[in-house]
Design a binder for these strands. Structure first.
Length: 491
RNA sequence: GGUCUCUUGGCCGAGUGGCUAGGCACCGGUCUGCAAAACCGAUUACUCCGGUUCGAAUCCGGAAGAGACCUCCA
């Protein structure tokens, strides 16, 4: 089978072989969060998707520079007419500096991403730290004749641009359609055309974040930061740009236009977009009241959840779907994922209990090849997981005596999980609470030894009483031939 | 309204022109004093209507339903 990585390039709408510009180096830029709100499921999906890409490329011996930005400028506009940002409102009410809000939610984001075992990017630039670069970019665009200034605000001239280049090539938009379909919102009379977008915006008196520029005291347009920061850290042309599908238009379309307008060429070679998340089949949205933050997920405090889910369950669940499919969250689906993932870890822990035999009935290298092929086929993590479950089945079969592993199989099997489940998919073993709490562990062993004695003298009433009480406390008991095993069940 | 995408068994979710992933649930069996776990086995699919084909859930056309985006909002 092929050992080449293919990824779906949004701009060509095809799977393309991934060939880095300067191997072994790979540059990736992913749109990170706007840190004015608590991190939610919509943040987890791109973070995990591109984390797996990052991990897989590193596993494949590439030297990857992964840049994921923090947006902390441009969205603080204090517009009391409509659509006021709740966080901004809160910041204002509590008399916080915008940077305090930014710091708080950046920390929250980092904390939750760490819980999801998302690796830190190589560079995490902030828009507010790159105002000069953004101004320089505007000047380039201006110099090339693709921008105009009105009342201290600078706008990108889409019409001028589209005479020379193709505006809409990423999203498939047609300019003529945009003429007729773009809504006319208030406060847009400065623009020549409704689809023009701001490069620099003059600050209103009540606007908090503002910088001096040659055009006005103001702030950069919201598409600009990614164009400026990606090329600053990854070069004029770089390999992969990722983000959520909702960013394709207008955000990424505008990024392309800005870069081409400034440099005369496109900067991104492969565009990758993850699909959205739904809750019980419905779009997740603040207005619909079905918005689930990561904190709510981890504590279980949300109407659609019956219990708390730990971060690895969420990660596992997200990876069970392909990143370009919509993924539906429901309590039932999460329960199923939790159980399945537990079973997988249980089997992994049981590898050590397999007694090696002379011959073998399993073929681990074949499954390993399937895993590699799956990842090479546009990061098909669901297939990798299904392959791992095939191994789970053979491990359990070996314990039950239906399969035979030789010494090499056992090592290969362990390596397979270590590489694919843990290193590349980034799942982690649960820390076994029995190891962390010696006293609990010894008390449970004590009780179960008493139960064993009761069983031996056929006092089943006593033995069942001990078992039932321990079970109701959340301890799962497994009887073996002459002994027992136990573990703590999740809440 | 425009552009695009999707529609798989009780639930989630892969996939390919014919050999019918995987997880969870359910059912039967093995094991067990009884359970649990595990193992073995069975059952339930491809929204609808046409067409292409020896053969389509997979390709083409149409219908219905769902979703995404349509500008300063991630």
């Amino acid at each position: 089978m092929s050992s080449k990585l293919f990824i779906f390039n949004t701009i060509s709408r095809k799977k393309e072989e991934f060939i880095p510009l300067n191997p072994p180096f790979v540059g990736i830029y992913v749109c990170g969060p706007t840190v004015y709100g608590d991190p939610h499921l919509g943040h987890a999906r791109p973070a995990i998707t591109f984390d797996v890409l990052f991990r897989y490329l590193q596993y494949s011996k590439y030297k990857v520079r992964y840049v994921r930005n923090i947006t902390d400028v441009g969205h603080l506009e204090n517009d009391s007419d409509y659509g006021e940002d709740k966080i901004e409102k809160k910041a204002r009410l509590e008399q916080l500096e915008p940077m305090e809000v930014v710091q708080y939610y950046s920390d929250r984001y980092h904390d939750f991403m760490a819980q999801l075992n998302v690796k830190k990017p190589s560079i995490e630039p902030r828009a507010s730290g790159h105002i000069i670069e953004q101004m320089q970019l505007i000047e380039e665009i201006e110099k090339n004749g693709f921008a105009y200034t009105v009342n201290g605000s600078v706008y990108f001239d889409v019409e001028a641009y589209s005479k020379k280049y193709h505006y809409g090539k990423l999203s498939g938009r047609v300019l003529e359609d945009l003429y007729s379909n773009t809504r006319n919102l208030d406060g847009q009379d400065e623009k020549r055309n409704p689809f023009d977008f701001a490069l620099w915006k003059k600050a209103l008196p009540e606007h908090i974040m503002r910088w001096q520029s040659k055009w006005s005291v103001g702030f950069p347009g919201w598409h600009l930061e990614c164009s400026a920061m990606s090329t600053k850290y990854l070069g004029d042309v770089f390999d992969i740009h990722g983000g959520g599908m909702d960013l394709i238009f207008p955000h990424h379309e505008c990024e392309i236009a800005q870069s081409v307008a400034a440099h005369g060429k496109e900067t991104v070679r492969y565009w990758m977009h993850n699909n959205m998340i739904t809750i019980n089949g419905q779009k997740m949205g603040k207005s619909l009241g079905n918005f689930i933050t990561l904190e709510q997920l981890f504590t279980g405090e949300h109407v659609v959840l019956t219990k708390a889910y730990n971060p690895m369950t969420i990660r596992f669940f997200i990876l069970q779907a392909h990143y370009r499919s919509t993924l539906d969250f429901s309590n039932e689906a999460l329960l199923a994922a939790e159980k399945g993932f537990d079973r997988m870890l249980e089997a992994y822990n049981n590898i050590n209990n397999i007694k090696p035999s002379e011959n073998s009935t399993v073929n681990i290298s074949e499954i390993r090849n399937k895993c590699v092929d799956a990842l090479n086929d546009d990061l098909s993590t669901p297939i990798v997981i299904s392959c791992l479950f095939d191994v789970v089945k053979t491990i359990n079969g070996a314990i039950a005596g239906n399969e035979k592993f030789d010494k090499q199989n056992i090592d290969d099997c362990k390596k397979l999980f270590d590489d694919f489940a843990f290193e590349i998919l980034g799942l982690t073993h649960e820390t076994n609470i029995t190891n962390n709490n010696k006293i609990l562990s010894e008390v449970v062993n004590l009780l179960l030894n008493e139960r064993l004695l009761a069983k031996q003298r056929k006092d089943f009433e006593a033995s069942d009483r001990i078992r039932n009480q321990l079970t109701s406390l959340g301890i799962e008991i497994k009887d073996t031939k002459d002994s027992f095993e136990w573990k703590l069940k999740k809440q």
